[in-house]
């Protein structure tokens, strides 16, 4: 798959701060989605009844909102 800006060499892409920012953002989303399953199922499950998993997923939803909000905030008219 080509870069988000399509059809350019890796050298050109590396020089662009937008590409670096995109990779950082996409990486953050990928890690977050992975943690969205891993943390509740592998780290929080099985203890005494608590609101731990509920609270984790609420925070997960807020971080998703913040990440998407940050990404669309840079759009220009």
């Amino acid at each position: 798959m080509r870069g988000a800006e399509g059809g350019e060499s890796m050298g050109e892409q590396k020089r662009k701060p937008g590409v670096v920012a995109f990779r950082a953002w996409a990486g953050a989303v990928a890690i977050l989605v992975f943690l969205g399953g891993y943390v509740p199922y592998r780290l929080l499950a099985g203890g005494e009844p608590s609101l731990g998993i509920f609270a984790f997923w609420v925070v997960f939803g807020l971080v998703v909102t913040a990440l998407i909000g940050l990404a669309v905030a840079r759009w220009k008219e």
Binding site: V29, L32, G36, G37, F60
Partner: peptide, 23 residues
């Protein structure tokens, strides 16, 4: 139980695709 919340929020995280595809 609570797994329903996680399932729906993974869908919600899929809205991040809009950052790439909406424009």
């Amino acid at each position: 139980g609570i797994g329903a919340l996680g399932f729906e929020l993974i869908y919600f995280a899929g809205l991040s695709l809009l950052v790439i595809f909406a424009p």
